[in-house]
Deep mutational scan, measured.
Amino acid sequence: MAAGGDHGSPDSYRSPLASRYASPEMCFVFSDRYKFRTWRQLWLWLAEAEQTLGLPITDEQIQEMKSNLENIDFKMAAEEEKRLRHDVMAHVHTFGHCCPKAAGIIHLGATSCYVGDNTDLIILRNALDLLLPKLARVISRLADFAKERASLPTLGFTHFQPAQLTTVGKRCCLWIQDLCMDLQNLKRVRDDLRFRGVKGTTGTQASFLQLFEGDDHKVEQLDKMVTEKAGFKRAFIITGQTYTRKVDIEVLSVLASLGASVHKICTDIRLLANLKEMEEPFEKQQIGSSAMPYKRNPMRSERCCSLARHLMTLVMDPLQTASVQWFERTLDDSANRRICLAEAFLTADTILNTLQNISEGLVVYPKVIERRIRQELPFMATENIIMAMVKAGGSRQDCHEKIRVLSQQAASVVKQEGGDNDLIERIQVDAYFSPIHSQLDHLLDPSSFTGRASQQVQRFLEEEVYPLLKPYESVMKVKAELCL
Rank of each mutant, 00 (worst) to 15 (best):
K75M: 11
L42T: 09
I57F: 07
R40Q: 05
S438A: 14
T202C: 09
F232I: 05
E279S: 06
E343K: 12
R149H: 09
G109H: 02
F282Y: 14
A381P: 01
F95G: 00
P471Y: 15
M292P: 03
V315D: 04
R245T: 01
A2F: 15
S395K: 09
L211D: 05
L108D: 02
E64I: 12
H7V: 11
D216V: 10
E81N: 00
V138R: 02
R300V: 15
L362G: 05
L152F: 07
S395N: 11
A146D: 00
V29S: 06
A143T: 09
D191E: 12
R171K: 04
D59H: 08
I176H: 02
L84P: 00
A230R: 01
A388M: 05
L252N: 11
Q184F: 10
K229G: 04
F433G: 04
K101D: 15
T244S: 15
A103M: 11
A322I: 14
N118A: 07
L258I: 07
S19E: 14
R190E: 07
E401Y: 07
A3H: 13
V247C: 15
G288E: 02
R245D: 00
V88A: 08
T347L: 14
T158F: 01
H97W: 12
L135I: 14
D441N: 09
N384F: 05
K295H: 02
T242K: 01
R300S: 14
E283W: 03
H442Q: 14
N353P: 07
E280V: 00
D333S: 00
Q41R: 14
L352F: 15
I386F: 03
I249T: 08
S23R: 11
T52C: 13
C98E: 10
Y114P: 02
E64F: 13
Q63S: 09
S447C: 15
R270D: 00
A103Y: 04
A256E: 02
L174V: 14
G8Q: 15
I62N: 07
L152N: 08
A78L: 07
F160L: 07
Y114E: 06
R141G: 15
I122V: 09
L42S: 04
S23E: 11
L46H: 05
F449Y: 15
C483D: 13
N274Y: 07
Q286L: 01
A480G: 15
D268Y: 02
E343S: 10
L142K: 07
D117A: 00
A143L: 05
C27V: 15
E50Y: 09
Y294V: 02
Q184V: 09
T201K: 02
Q41W: 15
S112I: 00
T330D: 02
G361A: 15
C266H: 10
F95V: 07
T158A: 02
V363Q: 08
S290R: 01
E425P: 07
R404A: 09
Y472R: 12
D333T: 04
S112L: 00
N126S: 14
L135W: 02
G104M: 14
D11E: 13
D32H: 15
A163N: 02
R270F: 04
G393D: 09
I386W: 03
Q161S: 02
M181L: 11
T166M: 09
I403T: 08
G394C: 09
D216T: 11
G156K: 00
K199P: 00
E463T: 08
R329L: 03
K415V: 09
Y114I: 05
S289E: 02
A90R: 00
H217G: 10
C399F: 04
A150E: 09
Y243V: 15
P281V: 12
D420E: 07
E70G: 12
V168S: 04
P378R: 01
A273L: 07
A206P: 05
K101Y: 07
E79C: 11
V465I: 15
P378M: 03
R270S: 04
E370W: 07
K199C: 07
D223G: 07
I238K: 01
Y13K: 07
G169E: 02
I139W: 01
F160T: 02
C399V: 11
M380E: 11
S323K: 03
L209P: 00
P16L: 14
P133S: 14
K246Q: 02
Q416S: 11
G96D: 08
Y13R: 09
P133R: 15
S151Y: 10
H86L: 00
D129V: 11
F36W: 15
E464T: 10
C27Y: 12
I269R: 02
A77P: 09
E228Q: 09
R149E: 10
P100K: 12
G54S: 12
R329K: 04
V414R: 05
K246R: 06
R196M: 14
Y466H: 12
S334P: 01
S112R: 00
E463M: 15
S9V: 12
W43N: 03
S438R: 07
Q210C: 05
A110Q: 02
I358H: 03
N357G: 13
I265V: 12
F345M: 10
L121G: 07
S253I: 11
E48H: 05
L482V: 12
K66G: 08
S407V: 02
G418S: 03
C305I: 03
A206D: 03
K477L: 14
R33D: 08
Q356F: 02
T242V: 13
L131M: 12
I265E: 05
